Computed example of a mutant assay.
Amino acid sequence: MYQTTVKAQNHSYPVYIGENLRHRTGEYLSKSYSSILIITDETVAPYYLQDVEKSLSQETVFTHVIPAGEQAKSIDTFYQLHTKAIEFGLDRQSLIIALGGGVVGDVAGFAAATFMRGIDFIQMPTTILAHDSSVGGKVAINHEHGKNLIGNFYAPVAVIYDVQTLHTLSDNEIRSGYAELLKEALLADRKLYQSLIMNQLSSLTSQELADKLVRGINIKAGIVEIDERESGIRKCLNLGHTLGHALESILGYGYRTHGELVAIGLLFAFRVSEKTFSMELPYEQLYTWLKSNGYPLNLPYIEPEQILTKMKKDKKTLRSTIQMVLLEDVAKPSLKEISDILLLDYLDDFLEELAQRNQ
């Protein structure tokens, strides 16, 4: 088992990464709780909910299963979780465990952050993508006008990452999570990026993936410790997300996975970076790797003006001017304001390029 610590503003919390951790969940509780509510989704519950329940047999445990998918990050699910917490009699000495991917972690974490003005919660990620969302303390739900617009900064008391749960992931979920690993490497570690891009997803062993997840978590943790509330360098973690989030909102949450659209966002960030800094990034290498590993790089036709409107809903937008995370080089991120006129030109060129290459 690997263990690291993330230093949050109000408290530090451990991150445990290893195999079979779900069978020993009780060992990782830092204190006794009056009751525990495990929140998971319809996909994860049949595989792992019973294991976690059994590991907490000495505790008062309740469970609640929400629908799977990005659509569950809604105000309705959030209200439902509060209703269940009240019905189960949770109090300020209770604990919420978020067992699942990023959606479960976000909505369950936001419920924990707001129930009785905040109770403890633990992240138990079951996807590759959730290695990113489970660390850093950002919890949220979506609004119909934009992703993660309603939320809070609220750190868990622990992250328990049983990598055995990754064996049941679908191919598109593996692609989704790996895109976030690529993002972290592009921000801070050229060697990790080269290592990631040299592997085919179908040939990755569990140990190779675990090693890469540890490195990705450490990159994320290092950035979060410097800027927990996203006032500076943490904004760079949104590399690829300005376009990715806009596409999610336009196409509908669940049309494609978050990471698959972030992958397209990474390609767009490469192109804008090249034009902004008059340099060349390994665009063709990244595009070829994404294509060969099954990432869907085709898009239905969308008016650039519609995408621009959604991009303006991004949390990094200041005074109606879009800020994009760009790269001056691999492992050298930069936050730049881009005018609407330029962005429309860049979007038009990029969408045309994608359409031509995916005919």
Rank of each mutant, 00 (worst) to 15 (best):
E53I: 15
T83A: 13
F78N: 03
F62V: 00
L99D: 01
G102I: 02
Q50P: 00
F62G: 05
Q80S: 05
T127L: 10
T126I: 08
A98R: 03
V61C: 13
Q123A: 06
A112L: 07
S94H: 06
E53D: 11
R117C: 08
K54V: 12
Q58W: 03
P125E: 06
H82W: 14
S94R: 11
K84A: 06
T114Q: 08
I119V: 08
T60Q: 14
A68C: 11
A113F: 06
I96K: 03
T60W: 04
K73V: 02
I119M: 03
T63R: 11
I128M: 06
G69W: 07
G69D: 08
P125A: 08
L81T: 11
S57M: 13
Q80C: 04
L95T: 05
G69P: 04
F78Q: 02
P67C: 09
E53R: 15
E53A: 11
A85G: 07
R92V: 10
D120S: 12
H82F: 05
I75M: 01
D51E: 15
G101D: 12
S55N: 13
A113H: 06
A108Q: 03
Q123P: 05
Q50R: 15
V103H: 03
L56D: 09
I119W: 05
F78S: 01
K54N: 15
S74V: 03
A113I: 08
T77G: 02
L81Q: 08
M124Y: 00
A112T: 08
A112E: 02
D91Q: 12
D106Q: 08
I122Q: 04
A85N: 06
A108D: 03
A111L: 03
D51N: 14
P125C: 08
D106A: 02
I75V: 14
I96M: 10
F78H: 13
F121E: 05
T114L: 09
Q71A: 13
I97P: 03
M124D: 00
S55K: 13
V104W: 04
H82M: 11
M116C: 00
K84C: 01
S74L: 04
Y47T: 02
T127C: 09
L129S: 01
P67A: 13
G69E: 02
T114N: 01
G118T: 10
A85S: 15
P125Q: 09
L90E: 02
E59G: 00
T114I: 04
Q58Y: 14
Q58G: 08
V104Q: 05
F62Q: 07
G105Y: 04
L49F: 09
F121H: 12
D106F: 07
I128G: 07
G100Q: 12
S94C: 12
I86M: 10
H82L: 11
G100T: 05
M124W: 02
G102Q: 04
G102C: 06
V52M: 08
P125W: 13
G109Y: 01
H82V: 01
F88T: 09
S94V: 12
I128H: 09
A111P: 03
G109M: 03
I75F: 09
G109F: 04
I119F: 02
V65H: 00
D106K: 07
I75L: 07
T77C: 11
A130S: 15
I128D: 02
H82T: 10
A112F: 08
L129E: 01
E59P: 00
